[in-house]
Design a protein around this nucleic acid. Sequence first.
DNA 1: CCAAAAGTGTTAGGCTTACACCCATGA
DNA 2: TCATGGGTGTAAGCCTAACACTTTTGG
Lengths: 239, 239
Amino acid sequence: MEVNEKIVSVKKLEKEYFKIAFSVDNVIFGFDEKELKVLLIKRGEQPFYDYWALPGDLVNPTEDLRDAPQRILTELTGIDSVFLEQSKTFGKMGRHPSGRVITTVYLSLINVNMVNLKPSSFAETVAWKSIKSLGSLAFDHDEILEHCLHTLKQSVQQRPIGFELLPELFTLSDLQDLYEVILDESLDKRNFRKKILSMKILIDTDQMQSGVAHRPARLYKFDQEKYLRLKEEGFSFGI
Amino acid sequence: MEVNEKIVSVKKLEKEYFKIAFSVDNVIFGFDEKELKVLLIKRGEQPFYDYWALPGDLVNPTEDLRDAPQRILTELTGIDSVFLEQSKTFGKMGRHPSGRVITTVYLSLINVNMVNLKPSSFAETVAWKSIKSLGSLAFDHDEILEHCLHTLKQSVQQRPIGFELLPELFTLSDLQDLYEVILDESLDKRNFRKKILSMKILIDTDQMQSGVAHRPARLYKFDQEKYLRLKEEGFSFGI
DNA sequence: CCAAAAGTGTTAGGCTTACACCCATGA
DNA sequence: TCATGGGTGTAAGCCTAACACTTTTGG
């Protein structure tokens, strides 16, 4: 097709005249088994062959910047409606061995149960990896991940973010576990509950856990409306 | 329609020898005469001829991303040590009429007294403009500025940021004026002073204002060391 | 002596923190 | 009946918010 030909020829021109490539990388967090996980791909080519890396891709010249991480996410997980927020742009000279690449990082939070991981054009191997047990990642992805973890920690204390990581129905203990993992500290149960319930962003579904070998917990879900309002205003988690 | 647009834009890009151009824009805030100001340049060419715009430039293929805004800032103001922080990257398709340009915005805070504005390769006309009286800016710079103002408002409540906008010696009223302008609300004098002094980031220089037609105020300066420590940890301004 | 801004303390209410025991279930 | 995690209340201390008058200077 003619348009594609032109685009290809422009791609060549870019290589020759404009030596900066522009990509996006996704830091996709999930929460499972009381651990914070990140979605990584295994590289099948050099450089960093066989290393784990953040999923990313060059930005298509005809897509909005914001659409690129969405495209990657959808391709990898099948999910399209999701928490997806721009993080930071990394552009040091030496960050990519094969040339000058500037990358904008997007952070997203998803419920692992909604995801059906599928091999894609990005990689054959895609996996949730616990952030506690990661070796070195490809490129400067260690630094990028570190930055996103820091952002997540801050955000969770300032806005009602993080709920995106849980299933639709969850217990207060689930929520507390999540906060403890993200903040990397333990919280007082009674105070945590008081705080969360006082925000009025949870709806008690009157349903209960079942099949657990202890007193079953109440199941809650979010009040989307209040949640969005609070997200605008911000709040202080003051933990 | 869309395909035609694509072809036209691709043709243009071939002429100009690039596909995605990558730039940085600087939002440089200053504080003077009890007003928050932003440093703008007047465009001398199309598109947006004669409009005010944020100073910006293409990223040089051989400089770190972070060095580009520093270079612009230094060229415009002569300042090299300064608060300079990455803000957000803007990359919608239509944001630049002459082609695809992705731009990373940097926010900086400077003391206007340190600055000696000079015409540069970026523009003949450089000026501090009050953020209260701005017409439409070039490109999507209104949106960018809006975003940075929002960021500044948030930041000032979470970390001891903003002091960079004041001269070395300043009064508590200066500081309060600054906060009131940034937050766009008036603050209680006694509570403000208690709060600021309890942070222990100010040093009382035992000097006084002089030549003012009222009781002269004490002059303070910053305790850099405590300031940096607090900047790490963050704090709650809780106004 | 007037105008202008600097400087100062107290109180009430709300939020945060620390802390320990009983409950409901499955095994 | 035991093990496991669910669920609950209170008091002390700290922080916030509201509020008005005296002081010091230049003109």
